[in-house]
Design a protein around this nucleic acid. Sequence first.
DNA 1: ACCTGAACACCGTTCAAGT
DNA 2: ACCTGAACACCGTTCAAGT
Lengths: 242, 242
Amino acid sequence: MSGPQISSVWLREPRQSARASGRSREEIVRATLELLDAEGLDGLSMRKLGAKLSAGATSVYWYVENKDELLELAYDAIWGEISLPVPEEAGWRETSSTFAHSMRAVILAHPWMAALLGRLPALGPNALAMADLMRRSFRQAGFQGLDIDYANTTLTAYVFGMVIPEVAWQQTMGAEEIDPKEMRETFARVAKDFPDLLDRLTEVNDLPARTVREISFDFGLVSVLDGLEARLHRSRESPFSL
Amino acid sequence: MSGPQISSVWLREPRQSARASGRSREEIVRATLELLDAEGLDGLSMRKLGAKLSAGATSVYWYVENKDELLELAYDAIWGEISLPVPEEAGWRETSSTFAHSMRAVILAHPWMAALLGRLPALGPNALAMADLMRRSFRQAGFQGLDIDYANTTLTAYVFGMVIPEVAWQQTMGAEEIDPKEMRETFARVAKDFPDLLDRLTEVNDLPARTVREISFDFGLVSVLDGLEARLHRSRESPFSL
DNA sequence: ACCTGAACACCGTTCAAGT
DNA sequence: ACCTGAACACCGTTCAAGT
């Protein structure tokens, strides 16, 4: 009847009784998010969370099988902060673009998310709603069958892959004020045998790093969308080519 | 003279004396890689590594400032496994494609890499050599100035973003044999309110998951390269448009 | 120059016991 | 139904001390 399953909070019934006398799931998630936002992923421990809830060190284990389940709850809660247009009105390019930018913004605002991206099952209601909407958008664009999924995966991969290093960078820079001039010198020393890398140093004319990252994000996003659009046109010409 | 720096093994002199009487860096890295490949990222601890080197629990701290430095060494060692064509001969599309596929293969072979992608500074010799070669490739393609960097970042982000979830998936599936039929039923239950997501279930006609992931990777890769190429043509027509 | 061991301040998780 | 505390088996890192 039941072999091993993917293990996820969302695949089992909450242990709570109907007439909850204990803590509610929202209460626990709220405390978890506060801890994560304040102290980062390493700052969240079951003991601290217990304390924050004025409970024992291991009380949370009654509500949650393990720490990963807790993170799943927090993870999905954050996806709830993303708001997307109606694809049938906005069109697939604008929907994709809004999706990408707003995902980026939300992750930068909750940097602990970066370490979770792609690592936790995304089966919560908010994640599912997003996935559903994005599929609608790509279907409406003209993709069919598995291509809907591939297009969505491509876009999401791009966003994940851009934002993860961006968070790391933000973290490093935020830690202590780093002198950009000195950083450049250090880099020049390390890269001394790599002429093409050194060229970059002359090319980063003094735009603020944040601006460069935003331009970079847009550059790649437009490329990805252009690439998807090109495929769309090709498959329209010969819909059975693959 | 010296403010705070980015902290990296590659930015300081190795503590070793000229006539090394102790362990060599290679020895330590080799042991680290063995531990990581055998037991994963969580399986690596300073104590276990000490034991593997027939040394005390904290001996490695003489060679390395902290665990992150150790991971930096392992990280760069893996990039050494990637071999790329000469871009001037292969052309930028083939170079990019080889880069992407071989990066993916190497990470899937060393799954612990996934958690490190984009999180550690990539300042080791192998990482720098790769970055240098990819810049050469994109410059030769016709990109100029910061666009060289943007193109490279876009491609790398795509690969990172695709591979991270793939490793997670591989991990889940490898752990215990999961019945695909049952998984599908479970998913149908969770996604019952999302019509477009449910459609996917009918579309994943029984291709093996591994094949689907490979097709998916290629789909996205071609899209990204097409998108970059489109930009290349645009900027050739009006090179000063941006 | 290189290595050790004890010690500090933590972890996640289990489980018997309480109410 | 919900919570507690002790206990287990770990961590990374510091540091005085050894050779």
